[in-house]
Design a protein around this nucleic acid. Structure first.
Length: 565
DNA sequence: TGCTAAATAT
DNA sequence: TATATTTAGC
């Protein structure tokens, strides 16, 4: 058998010496293939019968590193059986028949590649890649006996290479990681096969571009974040793939787990053609990820987006995908800090998302502010021209537009964060003890659409929506501490302004209006909500009289007078 | 370190 | 072209 320690030591010329099981009923074809393989120093064992081949594999699994199996329309079912049985062995299918169905089925059953006959040397030369690939991606649990030494050998080889080269990996680093990194290098330089897909080496030699990236798994993502934050922001992370990660998910090491920031990466323009890499996790590959420590479980579902990660050969950009979840975290952090106090570093701390950098946050914050600044005013700001001098950070030109009583401005963490919004069901409870005119502005900004946000989901905190605070800001955005009931959108009070479709949707519920009016009456010392013009006493009296009310309670009257003056 | 604006990517 | 994100510069 081949896989002894001595064999490994002598395996300097890998892949020479790889043992190939060749199953082909056509003896001529088999002989021809064998001849070519042997010319390349592969060791070939020919079988004409599936059962024999299978028993050979079963009896001596370590005796073969890979199999080349011919499939015909006649023997296909047996071939499939072979594939299923010899799953752990990298099996390359060959055929004279160009049958897509057969091809697909073989691949589906685990074949690593499908080659049409005749098999040229070119095609055969690189079949070793499948062996290495399998060795590294078997997921540990299914790594066959014959592949283990392969893996070790390759790791060893690469390790040596690296030591001579540039990357010096600390010895302390666990083997898995080492192998990982190395493997990446190997793949990138040699155009070896990538993870999930059967690589048709002969076709991809040399320039693996997109595919490389595609298959790249998180290992790459994690690789150096080197580029990135020179300012040392990104401590451990690097790139990540997946979703927003929570602390709990963090591994002591550095490789991200299931939830991390989704990042797309692009190749270094200097070296490669630039392309974004999208990680694809074929079903069978998922567990393989662990092998390399990069795994991230499955693509994050939180974001409907693809998982993207990056091949870190380059150092350029890692695009953070601000998924709704991530954005939600962001908004929560911002609101927790208070819009005024929200600065990138603090937000970053609160978010606790591995892989996210201050720059990322700053960038997002910029966008966030832009939205608040520009979009809001567009919708409702027209009627509230702001003084230009209010340039204080965190100050948003938009005026209060809240249609509901809000929280006390001094309480940044209301016990019951309820965010009634325009059009929100009147059943929304109102925070107890709040009697001030809400100082909050609930920017109706934004187009929920852009964040997959459903307007006013019952009980939901619309954090996904731009500007929809998850937590009320500590204080109002402007100097209208008391007038938050902006009815300017109603069009009733103010018909001089056009209303957007959204405005209609946001139209305050009647009971809310009633409530506001009631409060205005009961608390005459408070200014009227914005948008409400104090009626003249004459008008009020006339209206009351019209309704058959001739007697006016003193406090009502005083209230009217109060506001009228 | 934060902010803005330009550059770049999608 | 519009939008999102990164990068550069202050």
């Amino acid at each position: 058998m081949v896989c002894t320690a001595n064999d490994l030591l002598a395996w300097k010329d890998f892949p020479k010496g790889l043992k190939i099981l060749l199953l082909d009923e056509d003896s001529n074809s088999a002989a021809e293939i064998k001849s070519k393989l042997e010319a390349m120093d592969y060791i070939v064992s020919i079988f004409c019968d599936e059962k024999e081949a299978l028993s050979a594999i079963t009896d001596k699994p370590e005796s073969f590193h890979a199999a080349i199996v011919e499939v015909t329309t006649i023997n296909s079912s047996e071939t499939y059986k072979f594939l299923e049985t010899a799953k752990d062995m990298p099996t390359i299918m060959t055929s004279n028949t160009h049958c897509l169905n057969t091809m697909i089925k073989c691949i589906a059953l685990g074949a690593v590649e499908f080659l049409w006959k005749p098999l040229s040397e070119e095609k055969l030369r690189n079949i070793w890649q499948h062996v290495v690939h399998k060795a590294f991606n078997a997921g540990g649990t299914v790594l066959s006996e014959s592949l283990k030494p392969i893996k070790e050998s390759v790791v060893s080889m690469l390790h040596l290479q690296l030591e001579n080269g540039k990357l010096r990996k600390e010895n302390s680093e666990e083997t898995e990681n080492v192998s990982l990194v190395h493997k990446d290098e190997l793949e990138q330089s040699g155009g070896s096969d990538k993870y999930p897909a059967p690589s048709t080496p002969q076709l991809k030699q040399g320039g693996r571009s997109l595919d490389d990236g595609d298959c790249q798994d998180h290992a790459n993502c994690s690789t150096e974040k080197e580029s990135g934050e020179l300012d040392g922001e990104s401590k451990s992370v690097e790139t990540t793939c997946g979703n927003s990660i929570t602390e709990e998910n963090l591994q002591p090491g550095k490789h991200r787990r299931p939830k991390e920031v989704e990042i797309k990466e692009e190749d270094d323009s200097a070296n490669n053609s630039k392309s974004e890499s999208h990680t694809y996790f074929p079903p069978q590959s998922e567990d393989n990820l662990n092998d390399f420590n990069h795994g991230t479980g499955s693509p994050s579902k939180a974001s409907g987006l693809h998982n993207s990660c990056v091949n870190r050969t380059n150092r350029k950009k890692m695009k953070v995908d601000w998924t709704p979840d991530l954005h939600k975290k962001f908004v929560q952090a911002v609101e927790q800090l208070g819009v005024d106090q929200a600065i990138p570093s603090r937000i970053l701390d609160l978010m606790k998302v591995e892989g996210l950098t201050r720059h990322n946050v700053a960038s997002h914050l910029q966008k966030y502010r832009m939205h608040r600044r520009h979009i809001l005013p567009k919708e409702d700001g027209r009627r509230w021209p702001q003084p230009r001098d209010q340039k204080q950070r965190g100050y948003y030109p938009h005026k209060p537009i809240m249609a509901f009583p809000a929280y006390q401005t001094s309480n940044p963490f209301p016990a019951a964060p309820v965010y009634p919004l325009w059009g929100a069901p009147s059943s929304h409870p109102r925070p107890a003890g709040v009697h001030m005119w809400g100082s909050l502005s609930y920017p109706s900004w934004q187009p929920a659409e852009s964040w997959h946000w459903t307007p006013y989901p019952a009980g939901a905190m619309n954090a996904d929506a731009w500007g929809c605070p998850v937590m009320p800001p500590p204080h109002g955005p402007c100097s209208y501490p008391q007038n938050s009931y902006g009815f300017h959108n109603s069009g009733r009070v103010d018909s001089g302004y056009s209303m957007s479709a959204n405005s209609f949707e946001l139209y305050p519920a009647q009971d809310v209006i009633d409530k506001v009016v009631k409060e205005a009456i009961s608390m005459p010392w408070l200014p009227l909500p914005l948008g409400l013009k104090p009626p003249s006493i004459e008008c009020v009296l006339a209206e009351l009289s019209k309704q058959g009310i001739s007697t006016i309670l003193p406090d009502i009257k005083s209230s009217i007078n109060y506001h009228s003056t």
